[in-house]
Write a protein that binds this DNA or RNA. Structure first.
Length: 307
DNA sequence: AAGACGAAAGTGGTTGA
DNA sequence: TCAACAACTTTCGTCTT
């Protein structure tokens, strides 16, 4: 479990109780539900084949984060517990229950709305279901931690989606998210960083190669051009031209060069447009590629052929 | 006339004192 | 918390095709 509450935030008691079946953490001292609807995201076993997976998976019945309530509800305590409490504790008990109720309905209302938005954006971008699920999961966690406060719901949704894309290695650019969600790219970047930091999500730096296929098809480049772009990119990585640089710029430049070499010339402008970088960035990367990888000859060859 | 090129100033984020 | 810094953008003038 990524994060574990050790102290009850209400009474400071240490006597916390994890109810696995319901997926909630309860303070035994005051009855406050600290974290509800927890799900153990990481499986403890790897799956080797279908049968085995079925047997070992602990998330049996279909339970999905894209529905606002995963079929798990929580109430503070039960009536049966009441007779054990004194007058003083009783009022505290009711107060807490009321609180819990307010919080959880607010969260649920928020989730219902947000997941609708999430689905809309996700389908606009044609994202795979797995990414959508991941994003919903991230969003749910963010709401429970109160990370949405002070931010628009849409921007957090967009940030969650962006993070989910990165984690699943199907990166979209911030521009694309921005277009799909009507949130400014800067803002998405901001909430993305904030949310991932607060939730302690580890995100690998995205690999330029992940962008190439998508850019290439948008530009209607041949498969050969595309695969040679990947080759160029690999060589660039060996030459350490890629570290610290924006992955989209590198992907764009590789494609641009590759297109030149295959006589499918695209203008810098076109490539820049698709990749969401400027022509200047492409030029800079392009220049570095030529210098370090000695591609001049190959390009000249193509030029001669044309004549 | 459009595309490629590059210089210069500006932006937003990271890092390290 | 602030300043230095790197990557990238914007803008604009010049050269090439």
């Amino acid at each position: 479990m990524a994060h574990m509450v050790k102290k009850c935030s209400e009474c400071g008691g240490m006597n916390l109780f994890l109810n696995r079946e319901k997926g909630e953490v309860i303070c035994r001292d005051c009855g406050l539900v600290i974290e509800e609807k927890m799900v153990e995201f990481e499986r403890e076993w790897r799956e080797f084949d279908g049968d085995e997976a079925e047997a070992k998976r602990r998330t049996g019945a279909p339970m999905t984060y894209t529905q606002f309530d995963q079929g798990l509800g929580t109430e503070v305590g039960q009536k049966a517990d009441l007779y054990r409490l004194g007058e003083r504790d009783k009022s505290k008990f009711f107060r807490l229950r009321k609180w819990q109720y307010r919080i959880s309905t607010a969260i649920e209302r928020n989730l219902k709305l947000a997941l609708g938005e999430l689905k809309r954006v996700s389908s606009y971008l044609k994202l795979p279901k797995s990414v959508e699920e991941e994003a919903a999961r991230i969003y749910t966690l963010a709401v429970q931690r109160g990370l949405v406060r002070g931010r628009s719901m849409e921007s957090v949704v967009a940030g969650a989606l962006y993070a989910a894309c990165r984690r699943h290695e199907v990166p979209r650019t911030l521009d694309e998210l921005g277009e799909a969600s009507s949130i400014e790219k800067k803002e998405i970047g901001r909430t993305y960083r904030f949310v991932t930091r607060e939730l302690g999500l580890t995100i690998l730096p995205s690999n330029p190669a992940d962008y190439i296929a998508r850019f290439a098809s948008s530009l209607k480049l041949s498969p050969e051009t595309q695969s040679s772009a990947v080759e160029i990119l690999e060589r660039a990585q060996k030459a350490e031209l890629t570290s610290g640089r924006g992955p989209t710029g590198i992907a764009a430049a590789s494609l641009y060069v590759s297109a030149l070499m295959h006589g499918e010339k695209k203008t810098q402008r076109e490539v820049a447009e698709i990749a969401g970088v400027t022509e200047v960035t492409i030029r800079n990367r392009y220049k570095e590629l030529l210098e370090e990888l000695e591609l001049e000859k190959e390009i000249k060859k193509v030029k001669k052929k044309k004549k």
